[in-house]
Design a protein around this nucleic acid. Structure first.
Length: 511
RNA sequence: GGUGGUAUCGUCUAGUGGCCCAGGACGCUGGCCUCUCACGCCGGAAACCGGGGUUCGACUCCCCGUACCACUACCA
């Protein structure tokens, strides 16, 4: 019988959650939901030196913003806790002891300095079957000597004892079977007495086993240590219940080569973090998708397609659709270069399809930020204004630039457009336009359009020049929604006022 | 250096031996629509890393080479 699907996302709180980590979390979540399984959030804080305050909260907030739900974790609780590794010391100690008793691991006293020296002395030095005989460990020392050192408080580590020349097979859902010879895997440190904490490798295996994790879904950077993990499961006697491995292709830099890193965002001008991050130590601020005006659904959609595809032409997916369609056998083996332009397009797509009223709500704080008294405008007004410009923008943050004329009359006019559309006789034409508009009883877009366009035709005026001059006075530049839609929303009085102001303030460019 | 992984348009990718002189999307680009800018619609340029096999037939299978990526800590 297949065991219940239980997956975990296990970040270490050493900083803000990276966008690659977000994708790993997302794939875990999609797989869990698709199979009616559990999604665990485990905090891997076994490196006491790298703890960053606020990082754990950041992770929670980011996942929540993106709609990646957690079933078990530090905040959610669960039957397999604690979910923070620093609180599981007793558990790890027990298994370290077991490994030692079973002869699957040994104690080593070599200092970092001694190891460094060895690495310099011997090319390709690796702590393994070939070299452990010349190191200071419980294999080369007398038991009394070892015990004496430990009781004296000498710092030591526990290393796994790797049997050389064994074929280690890692089964991966994306890559198939990967075989590695155990001679190339070294006697990795499992536990350090200095802080009484295990390293990632031990903690990870122990926790995954105890938490009954069925699938280990993580980044490809872990593939090289997967053989070690397989060996660890065997050493602990858990081979039969070993989880299925899935190593996801990496997210690569958009230019050049290599893994996408924290610094790429600032260098290339796009966020690499879901949320803005304020570094508590340096005070540096890194931009986030949320603050940039990205919609969480767009980020999720974009990320989902980076390394996975449905095999059809569909590109826009809701979270529910992703849950339904996602599968590892449609995951790419190749790292994906991060394409910011495509991400932008996804956001644009979501913005266009978003309900106008909903978008208006998101836009309101933005309005207030720009000094507009939102009480002065009805929800309907804001909603309709936003609805008219959303096809022209990519981010929520772009709305203001494109829609401000709905809320504030232009004080400046685009010089290029003036040059092209504001001639000597334009003020006169605009005066006549005012008279025409004054005579319109019903400002409904279609009606006003019929009347004004009729007037232009009857008087044999130049349509482009008149309409663009009109637009210039109302909008401040020659772009934006249909003029008569704007006029209908703003109303006759406001339109007339703006034309008058334009006549007064716009001076033709003469050269 | 060692080990592992990967290799289709600039980018994300479809393609599991004939349907492929390689399809979609982003970006770029020509046009239509049009009072402008967008949206939308219709077009265009743009790719199978190289060499050997296997086969009637290879983007697809095998081998070699090359390139790229990851790992190579008492970090995760």
């Amino acid at each position: 019988m297949d065991k219940k699907v239980r997956v975990r996302f296990a970040p270490s709180p050493t900083g803000p959650l990276h966008i690659g980590g977000v994708r790993t979390a997302l794939y875990n979540y999609l797989f869990a939901r698709q199979n009616g399984g559990d999604m665990i959030l485990r905090i891997e804080d076994t490196d006491s030196n790298r703890f960053v305050p606020g990082a754990e909260e950041y992770i929670n907030e980011a996942l929540q913003w993106l709609g990646i739900g957690i079933d078990e974790g530090v905040h959610e609780g669960g039957n397999f806790g604690p979910y923070k590794q620093s609180e599981r010391r007793d558990i790890y100690r027990k298994y370290v002891k077991q490994l030692l008793n079973d002869g699957k691991a040994y104690v080593a006293f070599d200092t970092p300095e001694e190891l460094d020296a060895k690495r310099k002395e011997i090319a390709n030095f690796q702590y393994d079957a070939k070299t452990r005989g010349m190191m200071r460990n419980s294999l080369t020392m007398l038991k009394e000597e070892v015990d004496a050192l430990i009781t004296a408080g000498e710092k030591y580590v526990v290393r796994i004892l790797i049997e050389p020349n064994q074929e280690v097979k890692v089964n991966d859902l994306i890559r198939g079977e990967v075989t590695v010879n155990s001679s190339v895997v070294d006697d990795k440190v499992l536990y350090k007495s200095a802080d009484d904490l295990p390293t990632y490798h031990l903690a990870n295996i122990v926790d995954d086993h105890l938490m009954e994790v069925s699938h280990v879904i993580r980044g490809e950077e872990w593939l090289p240590s997967a053989p070690l993990h397989v060996l660890l499961y065997e050493a602990l006697g858990w081979k039969d219940s070993m989880p299925q491995f899935v190593h996801l292709p990496l997210l690569l830099k958009p230019d050049g080569k290599g893994k996408l890193s924290k610094r790429d965002g600032d260098r290339l001008g796009f966020p690499v973090f879901p949320l803005e991050w304020h570094d508590p130590v340096s005070g540096d601020i890194s931009s986030g998708y949320r603050e940039r005006g990205y919609l969480p659904q767009a980020v999720v959609n974009f990320l989902a397609l980076l390394g996975w595809n449905p095999g059809t032409d569909q590109e826009v997916f809701s979270m529910d659709e992703l849950i339904k369609e996602f599968s590892f056998d449609r995951c790419s083996k190749k790292g994906a270069k991060f394409d910011f332009e495509k991400g932008k397009w996804f956001n644009h797509e979501y913005l266009i399809n978003m309900d106008d009223a909903e978008l208006a709500e998101i836009f309101k704080p933005e309005l207030a930020k720009h000094g507009v008294d939102t009480e002065q405008f009805t929800n309907e007004y804001i909603t309709r204004a936003v609805g008219m410009i959303k096809s022209r923008i990519s981010f929520v943050g772009d709305i203001w630039d494109n829609a401000k004329f709905f809320f504030v009359a232009p004080t400046e006019y685009n010089p290029k457009d003036i040059k092209k559309r504001w001639k000597e006789d334009t003020p006169d034409t605009m005066c006549r336009l005012i008279e025409v508009i004054k005579g319109i009883d019903d400002m409904t877009s279609a009606n006003a359009e019929e009347i004004v366009l009729g007037w232009i035709r009857d008087n044999e005026l130049h349509m482009g020049n008149v309409m663009n001059a009109f637009r210039l006075t109302v909008v401040g530049e020659c772009k934006g929604p249909h003029m008569f839609d704007i006029a209908e929303l703003m109303g006759k009085d406001e339109i007339i006022t703006r034309i008058e102001r334009g006549i007064e303030n716009i001076k033709p460019v003469t050269e």
